[in-house]
Amino acid sequence: MNKKDRWAFVGMGLLIAVFPGVALNVKCISHYVDVMVFAGIFSLVSLGLCMLMGYAGQVSMAQAAFFGIGAYSSGILTSRLGWNPWMAMPAGAGVAALVAWIIGVPALRLKGHYLAMATLGFGVIVHIILGEEVKWTGGPSGMVDIPGLQIAGWKLTSEVAWYYMIWSVVFMALLFCLHVIYSRVGRGLRAIHEEEMAAESMGVPTACYKVQIFVFSAILSAIAGSFYTHYVTCLNPGSFNLMWSIRFVLMVMVGGTQSLWGAILGAVLLTFAGNEWLQIFSDFEILVYGAMLLCAALFLPGGLASLVPKVIGVFRNSLTHLCKR
């Protein structure tokens, strides 16, 4: 972690910690805490996806499927087999990791957009399975009355408790990701992104690193899925379809593929946009999403995160300018 990241980390921590105190006291944004819980859950997914897109240069169109694998593992294990939710969570993550590994190894050996295609197909297959295995998943009508989470015998019911728990998990995931980026693996990954051939000839095990990151992103999605399940306490396949995978990609694109901070920013912005601010667009929402995705890819490849240093630069310039005068 470098100095900038440390500052950003502290700043964001403070912001997140203070937010409920402010929001709950202002009537018209009192429900923002609820939105932030979902934003936190989606941030976990987008962090993993950001590692994959920004640092391994691959795109996965199946994050919603991994999210769904985690969610349904938790749902089935707890409500049908009576497991403890905290045991079901790693189990779900394990399943997702295994599946990701099985898909990732052959797909990532190939060049270009093969992973995109494989994951696209795989995502749809998972969605079909969730709808078909009625005995286990409840089929298209889904599952209800899934138990909530408990910490040391204390049941998590209030939104604020959920908020702090989810965001501390996000922070832990972020710390881990930052650690990975500045480690040997991270340097190797960036080398892959720059020039795969060169990286390989320098002895970076490219395929191996890419598979590892893909599995890691699947695990993060699955954990997010588990939290989602126990928070909403019901499931239906509609929350895990291709549109959601596209939304996750959009979160990372808007935030900036090269920045983990951007991934969180993108997740928060899009969750709010989808649930609060874009409501006026209603039916046009799908067009707005498409346009945003297109604009982000065409005009702002670095995402919003790439604007931050520019804005700071402009700010600093004008400040020094003022001081000189």
């Binding site: 009192s30 429900h31 609820d34 939104e159 909403v232 019901c234 509609g238 929350s239 989808g274 649930n275």
Partner: peptide, 18 residues
């Protein structure tokens, strides 16, 4: 709720709280 379970969950919470 745009035919979306997450959104309908949030919308009901908003109706209750806000």
């Amino acid at each position: 709720d745009e035919s979306d379970a997450t959104k309908s969950n949030l919308a009901v919470k908003k109706l209750i709280k806000k």
